[in-house]
Design a protein around this nucleic acid. Structure first.
Lengths: 194, 194
DNA sequence: ATGTTTGTAGAGTGATCAGTCAGTTTGTGA
DNA sequence: TCACAAACTGACTGATCACTCTACAAACAT
């Protein structure tokens, strides 16, 4: 039982290879060898390749959620919470480009259907509860909550996409992110409530 | 030379299967048989599987562009053009869900790198020229054009995502799309210019 | 008619890959 | 010290797949 972290090493290697060549494009044998484990070991920890893919998705989502949740709770006011959510998500995405890319890749793949309903709910709980609260407090425009969720989620994607293809100095980057957040907030916030 | 439209039949079948099972998840043999052609015929028209995937992407993009371009030119004012662009894109996506899903799937796959630079430019020409014009006329906020492009593009995705999971009556749908467009426009338009 | 090109078929092939298995090593508890 | 389990190995396998090849048929040209 020499293992320090074989499953994690496998997941990390799989992430790198999946992003480079796609799920089906990367053989399990390559994942195993590049992770420094044998073929058998990989299947010892993950019964099937699909299970590996899903496990990778879940672990990445969990990490992202943990990261964001911590920062959100630092804030008091709802708007601050949203700002932190926006900021953190973008920053995390920029610091974990492969992981963020993988999430999107996974989202547009048949593997998404393999994730149990309950897990999906858990993963989105943070966002939904925040949105629900804000909506009930009439802080948001009278639009469907799910629509607001979809729009804000995609604002993050847009911000991320721009910053990945256009290198921007760190200072300007922060400013830009906050600027775009303000635009987003104006878009979804009810101007009548203060 | 019995062919009526075998290449198109192949592309249509490939689209359906790719969306259902992913690129690598669908064998060329299945595409051929479900399209009603032989295995050899498929490779007669498309030298490799990758070429088929890229050809499918190009044809879909071309179709979308043609559809949108026609409607944009109906409008005079810049804002109307943007509105038509937004409306059409969402409507096309809803009427061609598989195709729109495929575009995204393709975008987050290694195949994207196989599309020649020039083709990509052609495909985005419509959007970029429209944005460039608006930006030079100072109609838009003083933000990088590419950022505005990324944000608006993702607004369309968000709108599409919401409407695919929440069935909405056609009338309400139109209203909602226009409402979200107004929000988007407020977000990117320079309030000082009329 | 005759040759040539183009379209179509489908059996065949070599390579690849997910997953297995029989066996070895390493740690653990009595 | 020994028994037992869990971790680990890598050769192996059966299936699958992208792509080829040979053969034939239809259209067209001369």
């Amino acid at each position: 039982m020499r293992t320090i972290d074989k499953p994690e090493k496998i997941l990390a290697t799989a992430l790198r290879l999946f992003v480079a060549s796609g799920f089906h494009g990367t053989p399990t044998s390559k994942i195993a060898s590049e992770a420094g484990v044998s073929n058998g070991t990989l299947f010892h920890y993950f019964k099937t390749k699909d299970e590996l893919v899903v496990a990778l998705y879940s672990s990445i989502k969990a990490e992202l959620n943990q990261y964001v949740a911590a920062k959100i709770n630092e804030a008091e006011a709802v708007k601050e919470k949203f700002r932190n959510l926006f900021r953190c998500s973008v920053e995390w995405a920029l610091e974990n480009k492969e992981a963020f890319y993988f999430i999107q890749q996974f989202h547009f793949s048949p593997h998404l259907g393999l994730v149990p309903e309950e897990e999906i709910r858990k993963q989105t709980e943070l966002h939904t509860s925040l949105l629900q609260d804000a909506w009930h407090a009439k802080i948001l425009k009278p639009l469907p909550v799910d629509l607001i969720a979809a729009l804000t989620g995609n604002q993050i994607n847009g911000m991320y996409q721009y910053l990945t293809v256009h290198a921007v100095p760190a200072d300007d980057q922060r400013k830009l992110i906050d600027e775009v957040f303000e635009l987003t907030w104006t878009m979804i916030a009810n101007p009548e409530t203060r």
